[in-house]
Amino acid sequence: MKLKVYLTRIYRFSSAHRLYSPRLTEEENRAVFGNCGNPKGHGHNYILEVTISGIPDPLTGMVIRRQNLDRIVEDKIIQPWDHRHLDEDTADFKGNFSTGEVITRIVWEKLRSCLEGASLSKIKLWETSSSFFEYFEKDIETVL
């Protein structure tokens, strides 16, 4: 009998961004994005929760080795994004909105393929203390 466990590790990064659509007029941009469209940009302390699922390894008792997970998240997310402008300084958001939704999806895409056999279960991103975004491994209907 093997027990499936969920392991969550929490990371932080601070980045600038700006929400803007070149397909909308300036007035429409202001109406949709409000002060998040400020041309000079603004920023957040993002909190990123990465949840991995699996059966704990009989030797280590762990779903994934902490130092491996930390290194992957550091390489893929923190190092390229922390204390940078997401839209101007990174390749990840070229042609993409840097909304909480899209950031969450991009984190999911970047991490899921490189977890050394462990299974990504959920990404949760806090943009501010009052708003967060979640991306699940399954269709939301099967989770709720």
Binding site: M1, K2, L3, K4, V5, Y6, L7, T8, R9, I10, Y11, I55, V63, R66
Partner: peptide
């Protein structure tokens, strides 16, 4: 910054 959760799920080998 680190927690584990068990939800009673059993994986049949």
């Amino acid at each position: 910054s680190l927690y584990a959760e068990y939800r009673g799920e059993v994986v049949k080998a």
